[in-house]
Design a binder for these strands. Sequence first.
DNA 1: TCGATAGGGGACTAAAATGGTCCTCAATAG
DNA 2: CTATTGAGGACCATTTTAGTCCCCTATCGA
Lengths: 155, 155
Amino acid sequence: MLKLSRLTDYAAVVMAQIARYPEQAHAATELADAVQLPHPTVSKTLKMLVRAGLLESRRGSLGGYRLARPATSITTSDIIGAIEGPVAMTECSHADGDCDLVDTCGVADNWQRVSLAIRTLLDSVTLAHLAQESPLKLPVQLPIQSVTLASRAEV
Amino acid sequence: MLKLSRLTDYAAVVMAQIARYPEQAHAATELADAVQLPHPTVSKTLKMLVRAGLLESRRGSLGGYRLARPATSITTSDIIGAIEGPVAMTECSHADGDCDLVDTCGVADNWQRVSLAIRTLLDSVTLAHLAQESPLKLPVQLPIQSVTLASRAEV
DNA sequence: TCGATAGGGGACTAAAATGGTCCTCAATAG
DNA sequence: CTATTGAGGACCATTTTAGTCCCCTATCGA
């Protein structure tokens, strides 16, 4: 299904929630409540986001989480990467490719390109986009159409 | 990581192998050998591809597998779908969305759009592309860049 | 200085998905 | 009739994922 893990999903929701009120610090409890998810799980997710450098945390009574940088410069790719590790469709599409089938496979190169295209796409959608109430309809969808035509025409 | 399952990877490799010699029928054993993967696993993969309607099979001594339609009209999306089920990034991005968090989530719409964009991308890359020895360098990659600009400019 | 409020780190478990193997049955060609 | 080749499904081992919990540390304010 090429699906995101559930935690990644949570991460996106939580990040979006924070992004909507960037000024204040958000406690894990508060977020869990706002988002209707069990506190320990949300907490775990938040920790991962901190470790990835997307959130900053502050302990103590007035503590909580806030964005480490503006929502416009946090990408979906960053969020996915924070929870699942770097985006890579196939074994061999990360740098230290150690797939011993490269010879017989004959598909590696092209997969890597597809992978790259997806990464680029995910890089182009920011947290600011996600957090927007109004859906980002055309901006993403329309230009993609031209890709379809372009690459189809090539063959 | 947003990774394909290993079986999907195998499927792509095997399909590409078949696509390179579309005239003949390919026995599972032959394919397993060509691709350097254990026979039972390859066999399983082939069965799945048949059930998804991407391959046609024929039993008996001169039997084997061949493409159900030309390589140009089989997409990577089809292949992924055959093994992992329909491409959908989030729980709620398939039709029968039954996520009870839609209200508090506030991100669903946009994820669905990202999902759609990826699906569109995967639809635009065909088996013929994959099977090509020479990588499809620019066709896919360049137009995507314009997506980046387009959607960034929008926010 | 103390205590209440928050997060940090990591261990641990249960459940599910994945990968891989195997066995028996059915179809086809010669 | 027999050798070949796929269909279908059971089965198991391993890994991944999700979720919980506990104990420690930092910060604020009384």
